[in-house]
Write a protein that binds this DNA or RNA. Structure first.
Length: 721
DNA sequence: GTGGCGTCC
DNA sequence: CAGAGGGACGCCACT
């Protein structure tokens, strides 16, 4: 720790999340300082000391919050904290993400500090068949009803249903406890019996259902052989499509933002941490209000969000044609799961363990002492303090970096960095993949079942977790061995289909650049074509090196990279890199034009859109802080391309699923990796399926360039590429 | 809980 | 004049 302003000794660390929480709680930095002593000991004092010693307009990083503060504390105190000034200030401080300023109701001001309303509620607990019959009839008659399952686990494959709640109109909801279990628990309706009675309703596609993250409920119901149909609305997706970044899309946060209601949290009834109990053990008198409220709030959220979506035709279409239909598709993909060769992974773990041990021994000999190769801190001490290697780069925290690029450079001159790199690679493979994946195989199905998240990314992509199947290694030979453990069952083959250069094709489409469009239309290798244009040689004369440079330029552009970044990547001087970029823009003026336009569009309307109208709000595009503004500008450039690609593959998934259901019921869609879909087909069907999948994916969008799909088949995922 | 690092597209 | 590549998830060390 140094003694500069950004590292004041004795000031306890305050992470961005804590800082954000305080800001939300207390309204301004000023109030935090006034109140912080009460809540956090001496932090308030230290905060004040920290801020008071700042010169006017001094740019600094406050504590470790990474808050660039362009104004002094005196300035801050002078400001009247009305709603708009507060919003502006928060944005300056870099807390726009928590500002709730993205909502279109923004202009209606004055509601951020609104008191929670009293929630009118008429909640009923159903313990007798007669009352359940009344409610079932209500559901039967309702145009739309909300429901929610309470279960024993967040993991759908482990989850048992404990109860179900319903709502048909705001303020009125019912909870049906079915499997609560604790001493002296009241007698409840029989679960199997009730599910049997509900089944026709839940499976009827004509009966419209509403829920919060219905994919989860669909998966849980599937454990009871109930195929949920008639998914009409999902509040999580409504919120996501309406504004992907204004709030997290869980019910508690959404209720706060859109209903100004404080809800009963899961932790309130089940406790948290080690003391958390299963919902099964939650007493009925607590469970019923919680569960009924879930259904009620879902309905109320829908009543607020659905009209908002209907105001914008493109958002409405995106929601109805992409996101909602994707829910049952993802549910099936997850439940299909992927077969793993666990024996193969176990063998790899053993080999890695042996190699890791050898490297450790060797490294300790070189260092002359024992240390933890997995600790960046210890490595830092050994490399820079003890062995006095040159410091090439520092982390944002001011410490000498031990990141891969740095070690690679050092590895040219010293032996230890190379060993550290090898160690990192191997321990990563072992801990994250070969050790972990086999433990995530479901005992009942013998396969791994990931969860896809539909409302996480800012751009519209899916994400995957538990396990994350979207970051399985592919780059190195050792890494690819893990893909060989993703296998097809006997008699089947995996079919992997990926969109070729989809983001660059989208860039061609969006920018309408004639050169780029022509290159794609002629089916040329885009990186070679770019190299030929930029370096002004015939395409046959493009060397691997030139192609590599062109590829870096192409991808760099998609991400909004600067000359500095390109120079670093290609090992050029900055001016060389700049001249490449200039040449590129000279050759592809449409691209240059597009990038300038999209920045301007973002500034003017405050958001950017994908081809299908998905929006990403970028409030920081107008930030006076250059770093934040430029970050927003890069996002403005990247999001339409990344997001359009996400839209297209979602549409392809919906179409592929429909085709599977109709024509190939034995075939399975088993994975999505952003621009790739993986299927499992019987060997005998392989060739016809290959043609069908190719057709379905290529026609998922009609761009000015062809959507080329590369398809491979094999007994394992690696082979299928 | 946070930061650093590493895996993917 | 600093900072200079988009989007994710997971593991580990450390506090």
């Amino acid at each position: 720790m140094g003694d500069s302003v950004d590292n004041i000794p004795g000031v306890p660390k305050v992470g961005p999340k804590t800082a954000a929480k305080w800001l939300q709680q207390y309204g301004s930095l000023d109030n935090i300082i006034a109140r912080a002593d009460e809540v956090k000991g001496k932090i308030g004092e230290n905060l004040r000391a920290c801020l008071d010693q700042l010169p006017l307009s001094r740019k600094l990083t406050t504590i470790s919050c990474d808050i660039p503060l362009d104004i002094s504390l005196a300035d801050l105190k002078k400001r009247p904290m009305d709603n708009s000034a507060m919003r502006e200030l928060l944005q300056e401080l870099g807390f726009s993400a928590w500002l709730n300023m993205l909502d279109n109701e923004d202009s209606s001001a004055g509601e951020t500090r609104q008191q929670p309303e009293q929630l009118p509620r008429n909640y009923e607990m159903l313990l007798e068949q007669e009352r359940f019959d009344v409610w079932r009839e209500r559901l039967q008659q309702a145009e739309l009803f909300a429901f929610d399952t309470e279960t024993t686990s967040l993991d759908y494959s482990q989850a048992e249903i404990v109860g179900i709640s319903f709502a048909v109109e705001a303020g009125s909801a019912a909870y049906v406890p079915l499997a609560h279990d604790y001493p002296d628990v009241p007698e409840q309706l029989n679960r199997d019996d009730i599910l049997r009675q509900l089944r026709p309703l839940l499976e009827d596609p004509g009966k419209a259902k509403l829920g919060q993250n219905l994919k989860y409920d669909a998966n849980v119901l599937a454990n009871y052989d109930i195929e949920l149909r008639g998914i009409a609305h999902d509040t999580m997706l409504e919120s996501y499509v309406y504004n992907s970044v204004a709030t997290k899309h869980n019910m508690d946060d959404m209720a706060k933002k859109y209903l100004h209601l404080e809800t009963i949290h899961y932790e309130d009834v089940a406790g948290k941490g080690a003391k958390q109990i299963s919902f099964r053990e939650v007493p009925l008198e607590q469970a019923a209000p919680y569960a009924a409220e879930d259904a009620d709030i879902t309905l109320r959220l829908h009543q607020v969000l659905w009209p908002k979506l209907q105001e914008n035709e493109r958002l409405r279409q995106l929601y109805l044609d992409f996101e909602v239909p994707l829910v049952p598709v993802l549910s099936r993909v997850e439940r299909n799961g992927v077969l793993l060769d666990v024996g193969m992974l176990a063998q790899q773990s053993r080999e890695l363990a042996r190699q890791i041990k050898d490297i450790e021994q060797h490294a300790h000999e070189i260092a002359g002492q024992s240390f933890n190769l997995g600790s960046p801190k210890q490595i830092q001490a050994i490399l820079y303090d003890q062995l006095s290697l040159p410091v090439l780069k520092k982390t944002p925290g001011g410490q000498p970096s031990t990141a891969e690029s740095v070690l690679q450079e050092l590895a040219l001159d010293y032996p230890l960095p190379k060993l550290i790199l090898e160690y990192r690679g191997m321990s990563k493979l072992k801990s994250t993949y070969t050790d972990k994946l086999p433990r995530q195989v479901n005992k009942k199905t013998g396969r791994v079942h990931t969860s896809y998240h539909q409302a996480v990314t800012a751009t519209g992509r899916l994400s995957s977790s538990d396990p994350n199947l979207q970051n399985i290694p592919v780059r190195t030979e050792e890494g690819r061995r893990i893909r060989k453990a993703f296998v097809a069952p006997p008699g089947c083959r995996l079919l992997a289909a990926d969109y070729s250069q989809i983001e660059l094709r989208i860039m061609a489409h969006l920018s309408d650049d004639q050169g780029l469009l022509k290159a794609f239309s002629e089916g040329r290798d885009i990186h070679s074509a770019t190299a030929a244009e930029v370096f002004q040689v015939a395409e046959e004369q493009v060397t691997q090196d030139l192609r590599r440079s062109a590829k870096a330029i192409n991808f760099g552009l998609i991400y909004g990279m600067s000359a500095f970044g390109l120079a670093r990547q290609l090992g050029l001087t900055r001016s060389q890199a700049q001249s490449y970029i200039d040449l590129y823009f000279a050759r592809y003026p449409g691209v240059k034009n597009y990038m300038d336009n999209i920045r301007e569009t973002a500034r003017q309307q405050g958001y950017v859109e994908t081809l299908f109208g998905r929006r990403l709000y970028l409030p920081e595009i107008k930030s006076r802080n250059a770093a934040r503004r430029q970050y927003a500008e890069r996002t403005a450039i990247n999001a339409p391309m990344q997001g359009t690609a996400a839209d297209i593959i979602k549409r392809a998934m919906i179409a592929a699923d429909a085709w599977l259901q109709k024509d190939q019921p034995d075939g399975k869609m088993i994975m999505q990796v952003h621009d790739e879909l993986v299927f499992e087909f019987a060997e005998s069907d392989l060739e016809s399926c290959r043609a069908s999948i190719g057709r379905i994916m290529s026609s998922a969008a009609d761009l000015k360039v062809p959507l080329v799909v590369d398809i491979g088949v094999g007994k394992n995922w690696d082979e299928a590429h």
